[in-house]
């Protein structure tokens, strides 16, 4: 609805952003169906599923939190908050890189609009930006479509999940691992990634054996990043 109040050029770029992000939104929807089905297995109700997707709108963090979710016992709120923070820290870097667009257009309400920055429309807008194009409207158009795809597909997945029955029978219990392995490999940035990932993987396996609950996610994620920070600095 915000789009209706935008000036004409913004309106066009909003629609362009939507159009260009359509293939990405489709893959988000596939991923959302799986998340919705797994959310049911983890013990989230339909309303909780919709509320989480609608308010949080962050697939990777939502997948991680399913790992922490408990259907009957008390929820580990500290671990849920810590995992959300760590998995989503990347958003700080991503939205920081969008600031030039917001400043150039003197965008109003940028704090609210930042909500629509997701991996997919950010990546698309970054690619545009690298070619001297890209706009806040383009970013938000993509974000709006990805948001709708995520919200709708997770709710549908939650409803359809009940019909699936035991997810292990279809291998769906492995969807989480497969998704994160694929996301991880998609983040490969050359040899600099290797050592931190090995440290993260190794400490996570150790921490899982030694520590209670899901703290291995936080321990592994932090040790790997710190190891990356101490990699050879370029010569001064």
């Amino acid at each position: 609805m915000a789009s209706l109040t935008l000036p004409r050029t913004s309106h066009a770029s909003f629609q362009n952003g939507m159009r260009r992000s359509a293939p990405l939104a489709l893959s988000v929807a596939a991923y959302g169906l799986v998340w919705g089905a797994l959310a049911g297995q983890a013990g989230l109700g339909l309303a909780e599923t919709g509320l989480m997707s609608g308010l949080v709108f962050a697939g990777a963090a939502q997948f991680v939190v399913l790992n922490l979710w408990t259907a009957t016992a008390a929820l580990p709120l500290g671990a849920i908050a810590a995992a959300t923070l760590i998995v989503n820290l990347r958003f700080v870097l991503m939205s920081a890189s969008m600031l030039p667009l917001f400043e150039r257009e003197h965008t109003r309400g940028r704090w609210a609009k930042a909500f629509l920055i997701s991996d997919e429309n950010w990546a698309l807008t970054s690619a545009e930006q690298a070619q001297g194009r890209g706009s806040v409207g383009f970013l938000l158009g993509g974000g709006a479509l990805v948001y709708l795809a995520w919200l709708a597909s997770t709710v549908v997945g939650r409803i359809a999940g009940a019909a699936i029955g035991d997810p292990a029978r279809w291998g769906l219990d492995f969807a989480f691992t497969a998704t994160f392995l694929a996301l991880l490999l998609g983040m490969w940035k050359g040899k600099a990634s290797l050592m931190p990932w090995i440290v993260a993987a190794g400490t996570a396996v150790l921490a899982q054996a030694l520590l209670p609950g899901k703290w291995f996610i936080v321990v592994g994620g932090l040790s790997g990043s710190l190891a990356g920070a101490w990699q050879t600095e370029p010569a001064r």
């Binding site: 990777a60 991680v64 790992n67 760590i86 998995v87 820290l89 990347r90 700080v92 870097l93 920081a96 989480f176 691992t177 994160f180 392995l181 996301l183 991880l184 983040m187 490969w188 940035k189 990634s193 931190p196 990932w197 090995i198 440290v199 993260a200 993987a201 190794g202 400490t203 996570a204 396996v205 899982q208 291995f216 996610i217 936080v218 321990v219 592994g220 994620g221 932090l222 040790s223 790997g224 990043s225 710190l226 190891a227 990356g228 920070a229 101490w230 990699q231 600095e233």
Partner: peptide, 28 residues
């Protein structure tokens, strides 16, 4: 935000390391 240095490098590595920390124990 630091554009270079240790903190910048740690932040850049974080998403991948979280994924690796999730996947490795599940596969192991």
């Amino acid at each position: 935000l630091p554009q270079q240095g240790r903190i910048a490098r740690a932040l850049q590595q974080m998403p991948g390391c979280v994924m690796a920390a999730l996947v490795a124990p599940a596969v192991a």
